[in-house]
């Protein structure tokens, strides 16, 4: 019996509900499924396949990371100009939008593919896998993967590279390694770029190295200027050693 108006109806026989309000599910029973799977497992699996492919062809794949404007593309242009003809080179460019960087690399005469991530903030293993299919990757070559300019997200996503090379320019703060420790921990080499500007700035190179070494005692450093060419020879030596 309805306790509001004595109408004789029973609550259970009539269901009155508003759209969007809680709805009832048909009876089910619950079961817990244990998983213990890494969220990045799928990416890591694709990255491992990329890595195996690079190894089978003797390709040195490097993941170049930095904040925007540190000079990664200029370093690449200079590197290609100096090493072209000595070592086969190819480039995958990552940016949210535009073909600008790929066009700059194409002008140097080597093969390049641009990956536009749209709103994405990093490259991942699958993007590299797809980009690789667009390139003629030669035996014993170097593949430079220029990641999206971002010191946060690319630290998490393995692409199958042999090493991450992080670039910091002296026009940034020397405390960048403290602010973005994950990337400096994940990197093998740190290029300190634009050193031709050091006389005009108060960037403390030793402090920068010290901050980075605190999170990554094994991190190697090379000071370069992609504009003047200073220090670039040391970078090429590093590349040649890694190619063997």
């Amino acid at each position: 019996m309805c306790d509001s108006c004595d109408c004789g109806s029973h609550g259970e026989s009539v269901i009155i509900s508003k759209p969007g309000a809680d709805h009832k599910h048909s009876p089910t029973h619950s079961r817990t499924v244990q998983l213990e799977i890494d969220v990045l497992a799928k990416n890591n699996e694709i990255a491992a396949r990329n890595r195996a492919f690079f190894a089978s062809k003797g390709i040195l794949a490097l993941n170049l990371v930095s904040s925007p404007g540190s000079g990664k593309t200029t370093i690449l242009e200079r590197t290609i100009g100096d090493l072209k003809g000595q070592i086969p080179l190819a480039v995958i460019e990552g940016d949210q939008q535009t073909l600008r960087d790929a066009e700059r690399i194409e002008a140097t005469g080597i093969e390049v593919v641009q990956v536009n991530t749209g709103t994405g903030c990093h490259l991942d293993g699958e993007m590299i896998h797809r980009a690789m299919h667009q390139l003629t990757l030669e035996q014993d070559s170097i593949l430079f993967i220029e990641n999206v300019g971002n010191l946060v997200c690319p630290a998490l996503f393995d692409l199958g590279e042999a090493a991450k090379v992080v670039t910091i320019s002296v026009t940034e703060g020397e405390d960048k390694p403290q602010k973005y420790p994950h990337m400096f921990r994940a990197a093998t080499l740190c290029l300190i770029n634009k050193i031709d500007l050091l006389p005009h700035l108060d960037f403390d190179v030793a402090a920068c190295r010290g901050f980075a070494r605190q999170v990554n005692p094994e991190l190697e450093f090379i000071e370069v200027s992609a504009t003047s060419g200073e220090g670039m020879g040391q970078w090429y030596d590093w590349l040649r050693t890694r190619c063997i």
Binding site: S26, R31, T32, V33, I37, V39, Q214, P217
Partner: peptide
């Protein structure tokens, strides 16, 4: 002292999930 050896803290995984069976 500095130079602390860090272990763990990098975990990012799905431990389990609960399904409702028909």
């Amino acid at each position: 002292a500095a130079g602390v050896t860090i272990s763990g803290g990098q975990e990012l995984k799905v431990r389990s999930f609960v399904i409702e069976e028909k």
